[in-house]
């Protein structure tokens, strides 16, 4: 099996993507952060560092909660997607 990128892996998952965003970041805080723990904590690669700022996309979120726990600056506004939306595991 060849090694696949996280994005390729997520393409196998079933999601019901909501129009409402359930996790958001406070870019003003992220800008001043040096650690960027979120980059390594997120198993779905939802956080990206481009030049000096962090961007976040919620679509591939696996709802694990890692980002909220590792962010020691409280820059992540973390909630679950609305009922019935988000990741829907076929195997689990």
């Amino acid at each position: 099996m060849s090694s696949a990128s996280i994005e390729d892996k997520l393409a196998n998952n079933k999601y019901d993507i909501d129009k409402e965003v359930h996790v958001s970041i406070r870019e003003d805080i992220c800008k001043k952060c040096d650690e960027h723990y979120c980059l390594y904590a997120c198993p779905a690669d939802c956080f990206k560092l481009t030049e000096d700022h962090i961007t976040f996309s919620y679509e591939g979120c696996l709802e694990c909660g890692s980002c909220k726990i590792v962010c020691d600056k409280d820059a992540i506004d973390w909630t679950l997607p609305r009922a019935g939306f988000g990741i829907c595991y076929q195997y689990g």
Partner: peptide, 23 residues
Amino acid sequence: FKQHPSVAALLAGGNLVEYSAHL
């Protein structure tokens, strides 16, 4: 882990169908 020679041999030809995470 998957690329370790003794693991890779077990997974060869497999087809990824789901990727999941949990705490």
